[in-house]
């Protein structure tokens, strides 16, 4: 049942031009960044060759572009998630799901996995670019896998937060803006922490930061603490979404 709902969500996304536009624009921008990073790497070859243990292409180029990707997608994901619930509420199509024999949890998970489907497609499209290096070079696949896992976890966290914001309102634009605000805040929250690193409170703030937790994966480290952080983050927002939809039935 979750699978059915997820498939419908994904289908709906691709039936509107928005998903296609987002994919195209992101692809173009990341391609530009990719070429830029690659050029930098090639230009830096003479210096890199003099180093005793030079960083490889995966470490410099790929982790570089995926770090920028994460930030660019922070701006884009709210546009994808904004309509998920708010538009259904506006078109009164939620009644179809509410009166069908499915639970609220299934509805929310279905929507979340639908979004995940889109994110996986997007990440796959982006990964094709670094893979093109294989034509003339070698890649560190372990490192690449860690980067991709980190990126997917980060994007899933974005999607879960966006889904929750979408359940709060019936105006997609408001959902988009508040998702964007929330994500940016969580991204930048460790700015406060990085100045005075000894303070307990700022340690907590930097722990909350979404950015911090993506760093280890980007370095090629599979960090279970960060994995758990993301899973918790996703779970919290999904549970909140379920609660929010339940309360729709209780009062309006």
């Amino acid at each position: 049942m979750i699978w059915l709902l997820a498939r419908r969500e994904l289908r709906s996304l691709f039936l509107s031009p928005l998903a296609w536009a987002v994919l195209a624009v992101i692809q173009l921008i990341i391609a530009w960044l990719f070429l830029f990073f690659l050029q930098q790497y090639i230009d830096a070859q003479p210096q890199l060759n003099m180093m005793p243990d030079p960083p490889g292409v995966t470490e410099t180029v790929i982790s570089g572009i995926f770090q920028s990707t994460a930030f660019i997608l922070l701006l884009v994901i709210p546009l994808i998630t904004m309509r998920v619930v708010s538009e259904e509420r506006r078109n009164k199509t939620l009644a179809l799901l509410f009166s069908a024999p499915v639970s609220m949890t299934e509805i929310v998970l279905g929507k979340f996995f639908g979004l995940m489907g889109f994110l996986v497609i997007m990440v796959f499209m982006l990964t094709l670019m670094p893979l093109s290096i294989l034509i003339g070079g070698n890649l560190d696949f372990g490192h690449l896998a860690a980067i991709l896992l980190g990126l997917l976890l980060l994007l899933s966290a974005f999607a879960a937060a966006g889904l929750f914001m979408s359940t709060l309102t019936n105006q997609p634009i408001i959902a988009a803006i508040s998702t964007f605000g929330l994500l940016l805040l969580l991204w930048l929250i460790d700015v406060a922490g990085s100045n005075v690193s000894t303070d307990k409170a700022s340690e907590l703030l930097s722990y909350l930061s979404l950015l911090r937790h993506s760093e280890a994966f980007n370095k090629g480290v599979f960090s279970s603490t960060d994995l758990i952080y993301y899973l918790l983050f996703i779970t919290v927002f999904l549970v909140l979404s379920i609660r929010r939809l339940e309360s729709d039935r209780l009062q309006r």
Binding site: L4, R8, R11, S12, N91, T93, A95, A100
Partner: peptide, 30 residues
Amino acid sequence: KAHIGYLPEQPPLYPDFTVNEYLRFCARLN
């Protein structure tokens, strides 16, 4: 809920779907 079919005041339709797709989805949903 499996025993109920409901048509609200405003029919809950997905405008981007064709009739066949929509009904197929509803059938599986139920």
